[in-house]
Amino acid sequence: MQDNVQTEVLAWRSQLRKGTLELAVLLALRKQRCYGLQLVDLLNAANLGISEGSIYPLLARLRAEKKVQTEWVDSGVGHAHKYYELTAHGQEVLAAMLVAWDEFSRAFDGLTAKN
């Protein structure tokens, strides 16, 4: 029984993580430009549990939606890195997402306080 609960919660956490991954990536890029591996390490350091293979298709989508732009930079380590940074549109979307997140979060805070 306890195992079933743990399995359900794990699946739910996975859905939560997937649903908020875009917000997490945009937030990570708000202060500085990053390349893919930096983003993976940054998000995993925040305990978001991102698998390495999932970040690149997501970044490709954000680029197609013009939320980020890219630049190849020779970092002096023998190979170049592809850096991602927020576009003006990306910043606008992030600001709107943060407002929505804040409303959502406050609604849940109210609900948990009542119960």
Binding site: Y35, G36, L37, E52, Y56, A60, W72, V77, G78, H79, A80, H81, K82
Partner: peptide, 13 residues
């Protein structure tokens, strides 16, 4: 572009 980015990632790791 995609393959070069993946190669860069693997080289870093």
């Amino acid at each position: 572009d995609i393959v070069a980015e993946l190669r860069s990632h693997l080289l870093d790791r």
